[in-house]
Design a protein around this nucleic acid. Structure first.
Lengths: 365, 365
DNA sequence: CTGAAAGCGCTTACAG
DNA sequence: CTGAAAGCGCTTACAG
């Protein structure tokens, strides 16, 4: 007799059938049915006739094995967790898109959580995900504290935990692209907008910039260095930083921003101050988010291959899940930036109209 | 004796303890431990001393109940599925952010899948999600075919399935905002960029536009109506549509675009054709995605409260999950747009310099 | 070629 | 106030 459903199901036509019901219906054991459902029929030499019967019945009853039960039994949830700072911003979603690409074809699903830079959430989420039995975690631009009992891949993070591997952009190459470009255009007084202190890329990027600047002979004037303030969505932090920069009253002809959002914010503020981009000031962004190309002027920027980083992260995580810890990658995996030249940079003003010094912007606001 | 772990766990310090182990360790039954862990201790009048002991041990062993096992037993996965067209675009992620807000505080997690407008994926995902035992599904701008055995909430969808409730923007109000704005500015020759045929909003929005246009006396010239072509990411479809529009060689002084991406694309094409926005042509967008505000010129647009729509969708879905089908909302839930006036619209050219007719754009490209 | 039985880690009537 | 036992829906040695 078929066991009575414990709660009056609200389901329509396709009430979920269980393995047991299916087996009963077919007069077979759960074992056999399970074997053909999950494709191990071959290994057990189940007769073709039986296989056909099972498959037909499964299709007819619209049977799908419960991943929950399967996970519990086989100790493999086929689920990973993804931690991002903010789900509505372009960087995370680019990476997510790449992650999805590789995860779904492997039968994995993922939970996303966004911590919005709240430390408590960042601390709480890993164990919340763990209690959901995720087999691994991808942290996007988020600094995970403690060691976790599952493999962790960090995208644009630089943790030194043992069980964690980092997908890192080649920051030196990135800095070289941007700074050589500006140098070729004749810019000498370059301002810098550094990243937020909480962003895991901020330090490595800045270190790379300092190194490259020294290498190629661009002097970094501390008065031309500002930093994005901690919170704030969209371009707000970039605008604030640029206001601060202008208030310094130190002349510059170019800005290298930590990211595109900041670059776009900078352009807005410059425009409001009556300063033209790129004829008076060139602006270089970072990331190449969707709106970089459609911005006016279109942003010259260092492109991070975000989808690729997501794909690499997911591929790496899957490999780690499937292998022994001894075989995990010992060091970070590098991906390469590319340089996208658009309309927000131009030859330095003093070269265009030679003899003319760069403008000094006095309290333009 | 503690059962031997079946696979040599790779875990560090915090190897996962099970209820059984915890109970054994404490010399209590699983029942009791379970009760204090999940907060039903009060109902069973478990002694304060025991509660303390259990809590202390749980904290010490870093115990967290397996949601998997709990879900299987209690038939509540506390998981929902979210289906979006494209995870890397602003609309979906705005909604996702709202969804996350309400889901997480209720202890729910969600799986995201993006179908990228591929019909097979759209057909396959619901049952994939169901086999993950989701208790409900939110479909963002995605037309789900068949009836599902779980509650479904559609954001900006207009399905007529019984088990589905729609979160709908008041399209008539939206159209009224935009068209009255343009009318007040003196625009008579308004061009329209309709949505893609696959977008569930396209038809209802267009119907609303036609109705409002008739109401307030704006004539819709069929030659000034173009449609976004099916695939294409970012602003590409909007650019293509605008090129088509210009090729029609019919004069217009304003464009009402289906969404901001299309509006931004239109502005790009107009600029490339030497047509200034807003002095020669006004452009109104729709959605108010992040880059609408930072675009140059900043976009005048009809704002969809995307986060709110996500929150309403999730709240509604949770209510449906918790209640009988008889109590589900009988009709769609409306949310209201707001109008955001920025710099992409201006008074019609013929009013500014009176006597001057709107320019005819002949093969400007 | 097929099946009976154990067990994944929980929750929950039922009993005392 | 606490516990023994059943069972959620699967998979997988083990046996024949």
């Amino acid at each position: 007799m078929i066991s009575k459903p414990r709660n009056e199901s609200r389901s329509k036509a396709s009430a979920k059938a269980s393995l047991k019901e299916l087996a009963l219906h077919l007069g077979l054991s759960q074992t056999t049915v399970s074997r053909v459902i999950n494709g191990s029929a071959g290994a057990y030499r189940i007769s073709a006739a039986t296989q056909e019967r099972v498959k037909a019945a499964a299709a007819k009853l619209n049977y799908r094995a419960s991943t929950l039960a399967r996970s519990l039994r086989s100790k493999q949830s086929k689920t990973v967790g993804v931690i991002v700072p903010e789900i509505s911003e372009g960087y995370s979603t680019g990476v997510l898109s790449g992650i999805e690409d590789v995860l779904l074809v492997s039968g994995f699903f993922y939970f996303v959580v966004s911590h919005r830079h709240q430390p408590e959430l960042l601390r709480e989420y890993p164990s919340l995900l763990l209690s959901r039995e995720v087999e691994g975690i991808i942290a996007v631009d988020s600094a995970l504290g403690e060691d976790l009992p599952v493999p962790v891949v960090a995208v644009s993070g630089h943790s030194r935990c043992k069980s964690m591997v980092n997908i890192e952009l080649d920051q030196v190459l990135a800095a070289r692209y941007a700074l050589e470009h500006l140098q070729h255009l004749g810019h000498k007084d370059v301002a810098f907008i550094k990243g937020q202190s909480y962003s895991s890329d901020t330090r490595s990027r800045w270190r790379a910039i300092c190194k490259v600047a020294a290498d190629i002979g661009i002097a970094i004037n501390p008065h031309l260095v500002v930093q994005l303030e901690d919170p704030g969505l969209g371009t707000a932090p970039g605008r604030a930083a640029t206001v601060k920069l202008l208030e310094r009253n130190v002349p510059f002809t170019a800005i290298f921003a930590f990211n595109d959002l900041a670059a776009i914010g900078a352009i807005t503020v410059l425009r409001e101050a009556g300063i033209d981009v790129p004829s008076q000031v060139s602006v270089v962004g970072f990331d190449d988010i969707l709106s970089a190309a459609t911005n006016n002027p279109a942003l010259t920027t260092v492109r991070q291959p975000m989808q690729e980083m997501g794909r690499v992260a997911a591929t790496t995580l899957l490999q780690m899940i499937r292998s022994e810890e001894a075989n995990w990658p010992k060091q970070g995996i590098h991906v390469l930036p590319t340089f996208v030249e658009r309309q927000s940079t131009a030859i330095a003003p003093h070269l265009r109209k030679k003899g003319l010094e760069p403008v000094v912007f006095r309290s333009a606001l």
